[in-house]
């Protein structure tokens, strides 16, 4: 079981590393979106640090959305999604493996870059560990929920905008709790409550999302 999970993760990572540009693009997108805010709103120190938790997370939502498409697109077109369901292992497990791989490709780089973004937006140093934790817990939820949307639109050409319409409303709780955690940390208050909320969201998503993704893929394969 576990070996199947590891095999599929390794396979997806290998495929991703063959097309490096797709690896870098979402993170570049993330950095650019964040840069737009000081330019569009105000570079004022105090103002920006107040806005920062929301900016970091709205950008994360958009970047997650943009990168989401690639999770099943290729596999859907070349038929390897069907192989997931023919395998002797439970499809939900293999799907979970694909989501984990996808998170390693898109979520992990964000984790690396986010402290740097915190500096750009004047988030005080004491809040950076919390910000880091919210990204660590929050982005896997985004990947899990986003994968449901991708699975539903997999059969469509150019489902990009539609995907946003389906998935962004479902991202709202993550946005609320994650940015609230960062805000409280900026104020110097304990943010463990919000992080616990995010954590339970992740557990719930880990249990339910693979089921929904597998059912959605079956519908799209029709």
């Amino acid at each position: 079981m576990l070996s199947a999970l590891i095999t599929i993760i390794r396979r997806d990572l290998l495929v991703a590393f063959r097309r490096r540009s797709e690896l870098v693009n979402p993170i570049l997108f993330y950095v650019i979106v964040i840069t737009l805010f000081p330019l569009g709103v105000s570079p004022d120190h105090e103002f920006l640090s107040k806005l920062a938790p929301g900016v970091v997370w709205v950008a994360a939502l958009l970047a997650a959305l943009i990168s989401m498409e690639s999770i099943f697109r290729q596999d859907f077109d070349d038929g390897s999604v069907e192989q997931l369901f023919l395998s002797q292992h439970p499809p939900t497990l293999l799907i979970l493996g694909k989501v984990i791989a996808h998170w390693l490709i898109t979520g992990l780089p964000m984790l690396v870059i986010v402290p740097l973004m915190a500096l750009l937006l004047y988030i005080p140093e004491q809040a950076i560990p919390t910000l880091f934790l919210t990204v660590l817990i929050g982005t896997p939820i985004l990947s899990l929920i986003g994968a449901i949307g991708v699975a539903l639109t997999a059969g469509l050409r150019g489902g990009g905008v539609l995907l946003g319409l389906l998935v962004l409303p479902l991202y709202i709780p993550v946005l609320i709790f994650a940015s609230a955690a960062v805000s409280t940390a900026i104020e110097g208050l304990p943010s463990s409550g919000h992080l616990a909320m995010l954590g339970s969201g992740l557990i719930l998503a880990l249990i339910l999302a693979p089921l929904a993704i597998s059912a959605s893929l079956k519908i799209s394969m029709n």
Partner: peptide
Amino acid sequence: KAASMLAVVGVVNIPIIHFS
């Protein structure tokens, strides 16, 4: 079928969204 799936996913999320 796809819309049904989305509706079911949505109804699981509504309490969470409402709470948040």
